[in-house]
Design a protein around this nucleic acid. Structure first.
Ligand SMILES: [Mn+2]
Ligand SMILES: [Mn+2]
Ligand SMILES: [Zn+2]
Ligand SMILES: [Zn+2]
Lengths: 138, 138
DNA sequence: TTTCATCTTGGACTCATTACAAGTTTATCA
DNA sequence: TGATAAACTTGTAATGAGTCCAAGATGAAA
């Protein structure tokens, strides 16, 4: 499923600048929920003129156009994730600080009390210790 | 269940200073998930010497001692909530910006894939429009 | 190639939070 | 009492993620 990023972006009503293509491509290839600083540091060697503001602008645009989702989880920096139409939760390991994807049964979360609310988005996340770190500890 | 806050704090290993008592009391009486600024502004008339740093220090201490929980939900300011041993989720209304408590069936969220992880905490939140605002809109 | 809208850039700025050092309170004990 | 020290509070300065803005670059259309 070899995605052509430039035409994909244009289909979403986004002008496919070089910076935007490279940022989207980075998110596709690095499903680690990177921060702005991580994205910027990864691309700056290839794109020496890149500005942090452009990374912010581009991510905000992608979020607005629903190509990308913000992941708010423990810590002071926002993280970014390619939009998953199915939706999934996250698990943050307190030892290695990695963030794992967790499949979620969204329907099961809804409770009676929410019936009067119009829910537009839902977020689930866990904090704890991942299997790798549990092994290392023992 | 008329709680004696000073002795409650001492039981938790926390010295019951006047500031700490008033901040805890405020959180007990205002289950609105207030920000630091809201707590500070509410108490500054009663305690003119109160410092914002004290509010930060106190809340961080309460979080460490598990008397209070941080609520991270949309927006740049941290919010605080008296610790609920049962646990509950939150719903943020995009129109009136209120944050509602939502009872959650935590067990139902757990998926097969989490079985190898040691989960220490879980967070669920929703974003959408609350019943009051839905009525106003129609 | 000219034009005009859109993008990118970097530096200034904002604002929530933390760090720090000096002053205050409180508990303990001579 | 008074002395001593630990813990707490306070105000100011510093940090740092994110935004604003104005000037320059890009690129599609005519
Ligand atoms: Mn993810
Ligand atoms: Mn709550
Ligand atoms: Zn780990
Ligand atoms: Zn509302």
């Amino acid at each position: 499923m070899d995605l052509n990023i430039p035409s994909f972006l244009r289909n979403q009503g986004i002008k496919a600048s070089y910076q935007r293509i490279r940022i989207y491509e980075y998110l596709m290839n690095n499903r680690t929920h990177p921060t702005v600083a991580e994205i910027y540091n990864a691309l700056i060697t290839d794109i020496p003129s890149l500005s942090k503001t452009t990374v912010y602008n581009t991510l905000n645009l992608f979020v607005e156009k629903v190509l990308v989702e913000e992941v708010t989880i423990e810590g002071s920096e926002m993280r970014y994730d390619i939009k998953d139409p199915k939706g999934h939760g996250h698990f943050k390991c307190t030892q290695c600080h990695r963030i794992f994807d967790v499949p979620i049964q969204i329907e099961k979360i809804f409770t009676e009390e929410l019936s009067e609310f119009q829910v537009q988005a839902q977020f689930v996340h866990f904090v704890g210790i991942c299997p790798d770190c549990l092994k290392k500890n023992s």
